[in-house]
Amino acid sequence: MKQVINIEGMSCNHCVARVEEALAPLEGMKKVKVNFKKGQAVVKYDEQLLNETTLVSTVNDLGFKASV
């Protein structure tokens, strides 16, 4: 499944790297691409192993505000 996650609070490319590094190892994650200018992450994942709630909470745990 492909999903766009809106992310508020990213201020630099280091933030982008933190989000990508947090999402990439999640079980079922296939691809993660974070766009700083758009304030979004586009992810592809196996919906049998991963869900929107986990994606959003993972980003929120980093101190950002995420929504789908």
Score class of each variant (00 low, 15 high):
43 V>F: 12
33 K>H: 10
66 A>V: 09
29 M>V: 13
47 E>W: 01
43 V>R: 10
63 G>T: 10
57 S>C: 05
50 L>D: 07
62 L>D: 13
6 N>G: 03
35 N>D: 14
50 L>M: 09
41 A>Y: 07
39 G>N: 01
58 T>L: 05
13 N>D: 08
51 N>D: 15
7 I>K: 10
50 L>H: 05
30 K>R: 15
51 N>L: 03
26 L>F: 06
11 S>H: 15
23 L>Y: 08
41 A>L: 02
59 V>S: 09
46 D>Y: 01
45 Y>I: 03
25 P>W: 05
19 V>Y: 09
46 D>H: 09
26 L>A: 08
50 L>E: 00
29 M>S: 14
10 M>C: 14
29 M>L: 12
51 N>R: 04
40 Q>C: 01
63 G>K: 04
23 L>R: 08
54 T>V: 13
44 K>G: 12
42 V>E: 10
54 T>M: 14
21 E>A: 07
64 F>E: 11
24 A>L: 13
2 K>H: 02
5 I>R: 00
21 E>H: 04
54 T>I: 15
62 L>T: 10
14 H>Y: 07
38 K>I: 00
61 D>V: 06
30 K>L: 15
57 S>M: 13
9 G>Y: 11
34 V>E: 07
3 Q>S: 12
5 I>K: 05
55 L>S: 02
46 D>N: 09
64 F>P: 13
25 P>R: 03
63 G>I: 11
21 E>Y: 01
63 G>Q: 04
65 K>R: 10
49 L>H: 09
28 G>K: 04
5 I>C: 04
25 P>V: 04
2 K>T: 03
9 G>E: 09
41 A>T: 01
21 E>W: 01
51 N>Q: 11
30 K>P: 03
29 M>Q: 08
52 E>Q: 10
65 K>M: 01
53 T>H: 14
55 L>I: 01
56 V>A: 01
57 S>I: 07
31 K>A: 15
63 G>S: 06
33 K>A: 13
9 G>F: 12
13 N>M: 14
47 E>V: 02
55 L>M: 03
66 A>I: 11
64 F>T: 08
35 N>H: 06
21 E>C: 02
28 G>T: 08
28 G>F: 07
41 A>D: 10
25 P>N: 09
57 S>A: 14
32 V>T: 14
36 F>W: 10
67 S>Q: 11
20 E>M: 04
2 K>W: 02
38 K>V: 00
23 L>K: 06
64 F>G: 10
53 T>A: 08
43 V>P: 12
45 Y>T: 11
1 M>C: 14
7 I>L: 11
44 K>R: 14
51 N>H: 12
16 V>H: 00
17 A>R: 02
61 D>W: 05
8 E>G: 06
33 K>I: 12
27 E>R: 10
15 C>A: 14
29 M>T: 12
44 K>C: 13
66 A>E: 05
61 D>N: 14
42 V>P: 01
39 G>V: 03
45 Y>V: 06
51 N>I: 03
14 H>F: 11
64 F>N: 14
64 F>H: 11
61 D>Q: 13
1 M>K: 11
